[in-house]
Each structure stands twice: as C-alpha cells, then as structure tokens.
Write a protein that binds this DNA or RNA. Structure first.
Length: 500
RNA sequence: GGCCCGUUCGUCUAGGGGUUAGGACAGGAGAUUUUCAUUCUUCAAACAGGGGUUCGAUUCCCCUACGGGCUACCA
C-alpha cells in the first residue's frame, strides 16, 4: 500500500437510505482517506433496481454534506473511474463473469427459484455448493450439448462461482487480524443474476479493482461473505491488488437484542437517520448539530485513548487510527447522543448558532427582526438547551408575551400586598433612568424590604410574569432585554391574570 | 442446525501479567444559583464461568456459556 495512493470507497445501498451505521462507515472511510491524503470515493450500489427508492441517491449525498463530508469522487462529481452507479456499469460485469466460466471458476445454473426453494425445504442444511451442485441443473452437471441448447434458447440462468473443496482461505482484517474460512462451508454464490445485473459479490470486487480501491471499510455483517470475495480476487488474477479490509463492529439496539434497525427509531422515539427520510425524523430534524452527530458517531466504537470525547471533524481526521476501533458491537445510547449535542451547543458561538435558532423560531411563528437581539438571547440561554428545538421554549418569551402562566406557582399564595407591590414597582420603573439589570434588581430589592416582603414572595411571581414559567436565566437580565415598556406591560397583563 | 465474529460498571469505554481496575453518559446525594439549567463536590456501579501457562492472571492459551452476524437471483 505504501507505493499506492490511498483510495477508500463508500458504497451505500440506496434501497434503504442512510442510517446510523451507514453514516458511521462513511465517516470512518472518510477519516482514513483524509488522514492519508487519499481519495474518498462514493460509489452507489443500486444493483437491485426493483427495490430502489426514488431520491435515495441525492439523499445520501445530502446526508454526507450535512455531516461535512464531501466525496472526492461521486456520481455527481465523477473522477477518472466513472461511472459510479452500479446500474451504469452493468456491461462491465458480464465479461468478468463469463471469463470466470471460461476458466472453470464459475458456471451457468439453470435452476428455477421454485426448484431451489423445494431443495432448501426438503434437504436439511442445503446449500448450493460442492455437495449438491452435481445433482442440480447447471453447466457442471449437464452434458455440454444440453447446456449449449439451453443457452441458445435464452433459458433464464445465473452464473455462480465454483467454490473449491478442501481449502482454507483467509485474510488479515485491519481491525480483527487474521480471519479464515474453510471453503467446504462456503456455497456457490450467484455472481450474475438472471436479469444480467451483478450481485454485490461480483460488483464489489470488479469495482474495487477497476477503481483502484486500496482500503475498504464495511459493516461486520459482510465478514461471512469475505471468502467469496477473496476467491474472486484470486480467480480474476488481481490478488496482489486486493484492498485491505476493515470490518466495522455493528451498532446494536439500545434495548433488547440485535442490530439497530429503522423500526427501533419509531419504537423508542429517537432518530436512526441523519436527515429526515421516508417519513421518519432524522437527527437534523430533531435538533442535532452535525458536529455533535459526527462526534458521537465516531465515539461509538472508537476512541483515541486520551479520555477526550469532544472532537471536531478536523481533529478526528488527525487522531483517527484503525487499531483503536473496537471489535465488539456498540449499543446505541440516545441519552449520550443528546449529551454530545448539549456540549456542542454550549461550545458553539452564538453567531454560528444564529441561523439555525432563527429557523427553529420561525417555524414556530416567531418573527425575528433584530439579529443582534437574537445573539444576546442565544448567549443567555444556550447553556440550558440540549437540542436546537429547545431554543423555542427557552427563547420564545423574549419575543412574545407568555401565552399562559404557571398559575399554580403563584395564585394560591397571592395577596393584595403583592398586587400593591407590583403596582408600586411599575411606577418606580417608569421613573428609572438607567434600565439596567443591576439597577432594576436594586430597586426591586429596596421596595421589597420597605414592604417587608421576602424574595421568595415576589421573585418567582416576577419571573412568571415575564417568562410564564419557572425557568430561564436571571430574571432582571430578562427584564432589561425586554425593555421598560414591555416589562411594565407584562406585569400589568399578568397582574390581571393572577387576580382574576 | 452450520459457519464467522465478539464478551471490563445499566450504557459507551480506558487499561493490560503485580492497578485502590480509570474516565464519560445515565442514576443517587450535596454545594452554588431564592426559578430552571450550567458549574463544582461526592456516592453507587464491572473484568461471563471453568481449566491451563505463571511466583502471580482481568490481561496469554484452551473449553464452555452467553451475545451478535451470515446462511437469497438483498445489500
């Protein structure tokens, strides 16, 4: 690999969209490529057209872009090895499949789906391989003239790899080390389907070779099919150029058993997609910062050993190392994901949050006119927001009078003295020259003492008058920001509501 | 069933032949803030089991158990 440029490919299937595991694979691919000044290639795996979802391809690109990952080569930005959609490379695959047949490493199989179904049902541990292939309808078992006849008649058929007997094939995984398989356990996988499309097995080998891929990261679920790929690299005569593989640990369900699936999101109330997809809300829509999303995804199965957990994409590129990727699957923890987001919001400058917060507020019908005012508000409240959507609850009262008050917190203990206090406070505010937080607070406390009231008697009511509830930053800071007129207005409105 | 991969607090993990087995999230308690958060302090919480190897194994090896993945003309 030293004399070869690093080229890493990410090959998502557009049939199911991009979920958590997919984005993480993309991320690790990207980190490794960038760290080695290599290329990050996006190849779209649409071999099964029947399951293709309209718009999926653009969705994948949007997801990567949202995460800050830009492919060096992709269907929209092709490089010298274009095209990058498998469906557009269809003609390439047949010749290699036929070549394998010619060399005796593959064969034509004419069995129908029903016949195979029947065998699988009736024969325990049936697999299309060396044990049963002679009794099935293929170019190995049938006489040559019959095979020629079937082919001439365009009888539907597939091309299968002929897996050899009694061999051990193995490779060194970048994460797991030596992994090996007995060929006797491997079945004759289909390489070319009856419709002429390649299966993943053929396509991935041919494309990785033609696109000069040097390293390939994929999910652990692919490990069992590695021997087929190994054999293919060997039979095609490209063994020396086979990429190095890394099989990533799976992301598991937060509860119960198995790998994380789309249904888990709906069931447990968290996103499994980066962006909204097929009617389910993504991390973006739920109020996650892409920086936080990437950060927490990277830490799911990897760490730099320092104990640090907050990293930017750039830092990740710098620190990333394959040997620090874990072997075991990681359970997805939404609480931890939210913690990452809260950390990123706290860390962010108000200015960089502005556009996103504005969008959240606008969606809720709040018209933000003054950007400088918004910046001040964001600085005041961002430490108490976990998701971007929290900015609505935390900021709305800076822009509109509370729609309702937490009356339970004030009404039971309300008294005429308190009404008098606030009426008097209004007239003080009217006369006050400097409407600063400190001044208002001083006046408030002075009046409080004159009236022999305790802070507990009037501080909370004042907050509820301005905010509507028991939350938010220092109440006098809020009053200053609202301004004299609005503060007085809110006291008056609330007084009316409290004394009904 | 067969094959492959894995196994440290509830979760994500650090560590690695001799450690009080460390951190983070979540949880408990407290301080600060006369709101809610933030922040800070603090508590509880783990090496799957059995055999080896060794003066000594959580760490290395084997077995078992458990978990996961694959076993399609899906990826």
């Amino acid at each position: 690999m030293s004399d070869k440029k690093v080229r890493v490919r990410f090959a998502p299937s557009p049939t199911g969209g991009l979920h958590l595991g997919g984005v993480r694979t993309a991320l690790f691919n990207y980190l490794f490529a960038k760290q080695n000044n290599g290329d990050f290639v996006l190849r779209i795996e649409d071999t099964d057209q029947s399951r293709y979802v309209e718009g999926a391809e653009q969705y994948i690109i949007d997801c990567l872009n949202w995460c800050g990952i830009t492919p060096d080569e992709s269907p929209v930005d092709p490089g010298q090895y274009a095209p990058y959609r498998q469906s557009e490379r269809k003609s390439l695959y047949r010749q290699y499949a036929e070549q394998l047949v010619m060399q005796g490493h593959a064969y034509y199989a004419f069995d129908t789906a029903e016949e195979l179904e029947k065998n699988r049902k009736e024969i325990p541990n049936f697999q299309y391989g060396q044990v049963y292939r002679d009794g099935l309808r293929n170019s190995l078992s049938l006489p040559q003239h019959e095979v020629d006849q079937l082919l001439a008649n365009h009888t539907p058929h597939v091309i299968r790899i002929k897996v050899p007997a009694d061999q051990t094939v193995g490779f060194t995984d970048m994460i797991r080390g030596r992994v090996s398989f007995e060929t006797n356990q491997v079945d004759d996988k289909v390489l070319l389907k009856a419709d002429g499309m390649p299966t993943y097995h053929l396509a991935v080998v041919v494309d990785d070779y033609l696109m000069k891929i040097s390293h390939a990261f994929r999910g652990e679920e692919w490990l069992p099919s590695a021997p087929v790929h190994l054999l293919l690299w060997e039979y095609l005569g490209w063994k020396a150029e086979m990429p190095q593989w890394a099989h990533l640990p799976l992301i598991l369900k937060p509860d119960g058993h198995g790998k994380l699936s789309k249904r888990d999101g709906a069931r447990l109330g968290f996103p499994v997609f980066a962006l909204d997809w097929e009617g389910s809300q993504g991390f973006n829509g739920m109020g996650f910062l892409p920086e936080a999303f990437i950060n927490f995804l990277a830490m799911l199965g990897w760490n730099d050993g320092s104990g640090h957990e907050i990293f930017t994409l750039t830092e990740l590129v710098d620190k990333f190392s394959i040997d620090r990727i874990n072997k075991a699957g990681a359970r997805f923890d939404f609480e931890k994901a939210k913690w990452f987001n809260a950390e990123w919001i706290k860390k962010a400058k108000a200015e960089s949050l502005k556009a996103k917060v504005k969008e959240v507020l606008t969606d809720k019908g709040i018209d933000v006119k003054d950007d400088a005012y918004l910046i001040t508000v964001i600085d005041l409240i961002k430490d108490r927001c976990t998701l971007l959507t929290d900015f609505y609850q935390q900021a709305s009262y800076f822009f509109q009078i509370p729609a309702e008050y937490d009356l339970n917190a004030v009404k039971p203990k309300w008294s005429d003295e308190k009404t008098a206090f606030f009426n008097e406070f209004i007239s003080i505010l009217n006369k006050q020259e400097d409407f600063t937080s400190a001044n208002i607070e001083a006046e408030f406390k002075l009046l409080m003492e004159q009236k022999s009231l305790k802070p507990g008697d009037v501080m909370l009511p004042f907050r509820i008058m301005l905010v509507g509830g028991k939350f938010g930053p220092h109440v006098f800071d809020i009053a200053t920001l609202l301004g004299r007129d609005e503060t007085i207005n809110r006291i008056e409105q609330a007084l009316a509501a409290f004394t009904v």
